[in-house]
Design a protein around this nucleic acid. Structure first.
Lengths: 232, 232
DNA sequence: AGTGTTCTTTGCGCTACGTCAAACAACAAA
DNA sequence: TTTGTTGTTTGACGTAGCGCAAAGAACACT
């Protein structure tokens, strides 16, 4: 592992409040794995066997229903924890985790991580914090999906991605590499609805639409669309 | 605490794999609290301060949005853990927790529970399991809410409640104490849609509708409605 | 029994969105 | 440049289910 990757790992929430010794112990117990683009760490329905943390690259969590509908749950980047709910809850994976780019992971088997948690209680507490926060995120998403209209949901997603993608100045145009399809999956809508919405925003010069790409121009007005309902 | 309550607590998932001594230690560290009908343990938006487990009675978790729309998340019974996501994730409560009947709780403050987790790592692991499982439940609900029609969702909810309400013989009529409104909140629909659906089922003699009450007559057909999509 | 309150039912209009089809634009490979 | 591939746009259309209103039914209180 190179120095930079190591530094980022160390800063991950999973290792908060742990002393250097413990951290080293935990990291050394994990194994490394590299996933090429498109490869899956596991598929929906499989039994959970391991817990992983992203070192670099990006993992996408996708749910597929019986009718073939896809739903994107999350994009995980450096430091994010992967598979905790299934593993700890001891449920078959409810989503497929696959790499959207070449991705490096550090992983532990269930029993290995269990041992580690016993040796380092703070590790378990940190994991709890992570799972708890993801629960809150899901609650929010459930709420939005059932009580807010499509445009708003899409605006929210774009804002969120814009925020984590670039911490740049607020008036600089932010470019996101997202197809309409992906946006649809993230916002619990369809490709068509997203396309229409984006087109409208494009005309209003809130964003600039491109093929597989979206550039946020007017962050302020977008935030308006996402937040205040009748700020017409 | 009476003997029966104590026995049920001991069987709660939170205390799995703990020896009697540890269990006693944990239970003794908690404080008891009785909530009368309608009283809230906390309200949406408040900072999380404690973690509680239901001894008896029933707690309802409700989300309220800006437009006043209610959404019921869960009903918690004996042994269920309350407030873990908010507390561990360190987020303001995203729902109000209130008693639907006189309810007895055992609770710990955040710092107290933290200490306990350090003393008994298995406690943290158990908590992880609980939060993990609830995450899975939320994922399922999110999925259903966005990709399944209202009738099916309602059928699912009724089935689930019927299952935990009574473990009786499968052909015995199962009675649920639920208003249409509550059913609507649980299935992410409206009072009207639920009413129409229930009326239809009533006519088909799948359930018997009553005021604030619902009796499942034909569990099999109801399961059919919830499961197989084109079992017309 | 009479009156008020709360819950439920049902009809009707409406609209946000899903679905499908077909044209269109961007990019890549030859 | 041509041709193919893949992603996007737009229109037309259908419909599930929400909102409202108004009438009923169940229960509570006196």
């Amino acid at each position: 592992m190179n120095q930079k990757a190591h530094d980022m790992l160390v800063a991950a929430p999973l290792f908060a409040n742990l002393d250097a010794q413990a951290r080293a112990d935990i990291i050394d117990s994990g194994k490394r794995l590299v996933l090429d683009v498109g490869l899956s760490l596991w598929r929906q329905g499989e039994a959970p066997e391991l817990l992983a943390i992203v070192i670099n690259g990006q993992i996408k969590e996708t749910m597929i229903d019986a009718q073939g509908g896809q739903k994107a749950l999350h994009y995980l980047r450096c430091g994010d924890l992967l598979g905790c709910a299934s593993l700890f809850g001891n449920y078959p994976h409810s989503f497929t985790a696959s790499a959207t780019e070449r991705t490096e992971l550090l992983y532990w088997t269930a029993s290995c991580f269990n041992t580690l948690m016993h040796d380092h209680p703070d590790l378990a507490v940190n994991a709890l914090g992570i799972v708890g926060r993801s629960t809150e995120g899901l609650l929010r998403r459930l709420h939005e999906a059932t009580s807010e209209n499509a445009d708003r949901r899409i605006a929210r997603i774009v804002l969120r991605l814009a925020a984590i993608g670039e911490v740049g100045v607020s008036d600089a145009p932010i470019e996101l590499a997202l197809s309409r399809q992906e946006l649809a999956e993230l916002s619990d809508t369809t490709l068509f609805t997203v396309s229409r919405t984006i087109s409208a925003w494009n005309r209003m010069e809130i964003v600039k639409a491109g093929r597989g790409r979206l550039t946020v121009i007017d962050l302020g007005r977008l935030a308006g669309l996402a937040g205040a309902p009748n700020a017409s």
